[in-house]
C-alpha cells in the first residue's frame, strides 16, 4: 500500500511527474483565473451597498484563503519531513514558504485597499487583519531561518519545527486578537452586507478561488523541481536530464 508513497518520494520520479502535470496545472490556473476575474470584474453586477468597490473580493478572498491553507500545508510537509525524513517533503516545505508569503502580502494589500472605502481607513486593528499580519511574520520567519542555514537538510528540519510550532500558534493568535478586540470594541467596523450573494457574483469567486490555488500549486511545483535539481545536482539522474 505504501509503495506509491515511496515512489512519489523519489526525487527523479517526482520531478518527471511534476514535469508532466505542470502544463495542465498552468493552463487550468490561467483559464480559471481569467474566468473568475473577467466574470467578477466585468460581468458581475455591482453590490447594492458597496457598489464597485466589492470587486476586490475576487483577489482578496482567494489569496487570503491560500495564505492560510499554504501555511497549514507547510506545517504538514514539515511533520512528514521530520517523521519520515523524506527529502521531498523538505523541498515542499522550503518551496511553499515564499509562495505563501506572497499570497499573504497580496491579501493584506487588497484588504487595506478594500478597507479604505469601506471603513474609511487603510488599517484597523481587526482580528482578521491582525492575524493575517502575524501570519506574514511567521512566513518571513521561516524564510529567514531557512536562508540562515548552510546545510539544506538542517535548514529544512529547523523550518519544519518552526512551522509546526507556528501552526499551533496561529489559532491562538487569531483567538487572542479577537478577544482583545472585543474588550474595547472599535465602533467603526462595518459588517459587510450579508444578503445571500447572487450566482453571477458567486460563480466567478469560486473560479478565482480554484484558479488561485492552482496558481500556487504551479509555483510550488516549479520551486520544488528547482530545489530537487539543486540538491541532487551531483547525482546521475540530474546529469542525465540536463
Amino acid at each position: 500500500m505504501w509503495t506509491w508513497f515511496h515512489r512519489l518520494a523519489s526525487p527523479p520520479h517526482f520531478y518527471r511527474l511534476a514535469e508532466r502535470w505542470l502544463p495542465w496545472v498552468g493552463v487550468a490556473a490561467a483559464g480559471l483565473l481569467a474566468w473568475g476575474w473577467i466574470g467578477g470584474l466585468v460581468f458581475a453586477p455591482p453590490d447594492y451597498q458597496q457598489k464597485d468597490a466589492f470587486r476586490i473580493i475576487y483577489v482578496h478572498v482567494p489569496t487570503a484563503a491560500a495564505s492560510l491553507s499554504l501555511y497549514t500545508m507547510m506545517a504538514v510537509a514539515g511533520a512528514v519531513a521530520l517523521i519520515w525524513r523524506m527529502k521531498l517533503a523538505e523541498c515542499v516545505l522550503v518551496a511553499t514558504a515564499p509562495v505563501g508569503a506572497g499570497m499573504t502580502v497580496v491579501a493584506l494589500i487588497t484588504g487595506m485597499l478594500w478597507g479604505k472605502p469601506m471603513w474609511g481607513t487603510y488599517w484597523v486593528w481587526d482580528a482578521r487583519l491582525t492575524s493575517e499580519l502575524v501570519l506574514l511574520f511567521l512566513y518571513l520567519g521561516v524564510i529567514g531561518l531557512q536562508q540562515a542555514f548552510e546545510d539544506a537538510r538542517a535548514a529544512a528540519r529547523a523550518c519544519a519545527l518552526l512551522a509546526i510550532v507556528g501552526v499551533v500558534n496561529v489559532p491562538i493568535v487569531k483567538y487572542s486578537v479577537e478577544w482583545w478586540n472585543s474588550l474595547h470594541q472599535t465602533s467603526t467596523i462595518l459588517k459587510l452586507g450579508k444578503p445571500t450573494i447572487t450566482a453571477d457574483m458567486a460563480v466567478p469567486l469560486y473560479a478565482a478561488l480554484a484558479g488561485t490555488f492552482l496558481l500556487c500549486a504551479y509555483a510550488i511545483l516549479r520551486r520544488v523541481q528547482n530545489e530537487l535539481l539543486w540538491r541532487e545536482r551531483r547525482t546521475g539522474w540530474v546529469a542525465e536530464l540536463l
Binding site: 502575524v134 511574520f137 529567514g144 531561518l145 540562515a148 493568535v173
Partner: peptide, 21 residues
C-alpha cells in the same frame, strides 16, 4: 552566525498572544 538578528524576528510573532492577554 546571525542568530542575534534572527531570534527576535522569530520570537515576537509567536509571543503575540501572551502580550495580548
Amino acid at each position: 552566525p546571525r542568530a542575534g538578528l534572527l531570534l527576535p524576528v522569530l520570537v515576537l510573532p509567536l509571543i503575540v498572544p501572551v502580550v495580548i492577554f
